[in-house]
Write a protein that binds this DNA or RNA. Structure first.
Lengths: 243, 243
DNA sequence: AAATATTTGTCCGTATGTATC
DNA sequence: TGATACATACGGACAAATATT
């Protein structure tokens, strides 16, 4: 309503309409003390309430959605989301993408520090379900590696899937800490690597599988020292691919 | 084009279209190495290129805009934006309603791990200019603390400035590592704290100043062991405020 | 279990404000 | 000044997903 909208003439030099709506919706959430799980009014209701077209409203909603504030589902409505920092770190690192070589070593350094730093916490909080998930991720990596080693030509298959399984492995491992900030950062750092590490080579695969097998073995044995050693080995061996 | 879109039937359970477009556009920017100031193709061109409607494309564009990646202007086009973190943090602002205690301890844990993990690197790369900057930040903290200790009433003055000086101190310290990923993360983590830690108490100020004095003294003496000790002290002492 | 209603997802067409040449 | 290119904004229509009766 603060749009001061005239029937056929839109606001001249004012802030874009969808941004005004974006702000108004955030205010609405705060004012009405909506909590995660609560629903916003339907799109049509908000259109009449705010006096804007559905199109503009949806642009605002999608902006809220990409920010992780709400999520919309057909047949249900628009639901307030739990606070999470994924959006923040994801965009932060995306914007830094550029010099791939330098970035790669930097992200690796950050990952190394964080993962080794939260080693104990991850070990302590790891549940039986987490362990099963880890084994699943490992299994995927093993299968893809086998398929690739069979191949005579150097054509790589399922490279993206292998990489994703690797990422999922580490995310599962540190999601157990319950530290959402940490999870966000690790997730973002992996996504950041994504662009640089797309061409995975079979020899790298073999090494990677072996490393993760060691980690899982240590976790199954509930041997923290072995786990620590396996993780250090994971981060301290240099891949031939990047020499 | 990867949408595998049929004329009248959309992808069933796949990711929402506007999100696919959002990702594809980000990839497009990276792949074509578009820099700030460069323009994306026009909306209509991208619609035909990606095979989606104008509406969906705009939802993706607006999401990119709220992310600070592009900005669109009528009569001009869609322009790649300079990297800027302000808007990212602005989005978090509204969300201070959650259980801030948990979040605070999580951010602190991440900061602790990162800063202690990159201790050696920061120490090695610290220049004379950095040291002067650190002293400036410390001085600001000292002055504000003095002003507050003079006051009889418990009214806090310049709390925000004190906190900012603290943040700048740590950012300067680890900017010297040259690891931009690390710098960004530390900056972001501080920003997360910002909204929870707004009510700084005078006793906390005194302690904080003392800690940073120790750090600066160690750095001036070029004594790594003392630096290490001071940083550990910094992170291992619990503030009374949060007990 | 099945039909119906609700709600978001996606598309199209049209008019208007804005910047550039 | 005018012409052109572009994003902004509106409205209507149907499809798809979910909830409800």
């Amino acid at each position: 309503m603060s749009h001061t909208k005239a029937p056929t003439m839109k606001n001249l030099k004012s802030r874009k309409l969808y941004l005004q709506v974006y702000d108004e919706l955030k205010d609405y959430i705060v004012q009405n003390q909506l909590k995660p799980g609560d629903k916003l009014p339907t799109e049509m209701e908000m259109c009449t309430l705010l006096g804007v077209s559905r199109n503009v409203l949806r642009e605002a909603i999608k902006s809220l959605e990409i920010s992780g504030i709400v999520s919309s589902k057909p047949g249900v409505g628009i639901i307030i989301q739990e606070f999470n920092t994924d959006f923040l770190f994801h965009n932060l690192l995306y914007n830094l993408a550029g010099d791939s070589e330098k970035l790669l070593s930097q992200t690796l350094a950050v990952r190394r520090t964080l993962e080794l730093g939260f080693l104990q916490e991850a070990f302590d909080h790891l549940t039986q379900e987490d362990l099963i998930l880890l084994q699943n991720h490992l299994e995927i990596m093993q299968n893809i590696q086998k398929e690739n080693s069979k191949q005579k030509n150097l054509q790589l298959i399922f490279g993206a899937e292998f990489y994703e399984a690797d990422a999922n492995f580490h995310q599962t491992l540190f999601a157990s800490t319950g530290n959402t900030i940490l999870s966000s950062i690790i997730q973002a750092v992996w996504a950041c690597d994504k662009y640089h590490k797309q061409h995975i080579q079979p020899p790298y695969m073999e090494q990677t599988v072996a490393k993760h097998e060691k980690i899982v073995a240590a976790l199954l044995a509930k041997d923290f020292e072995a786990f620590k050693q396996a993780m250090n080995y994971h981060f301290n061996v240099h891949y031939k691919t990047y020499d």
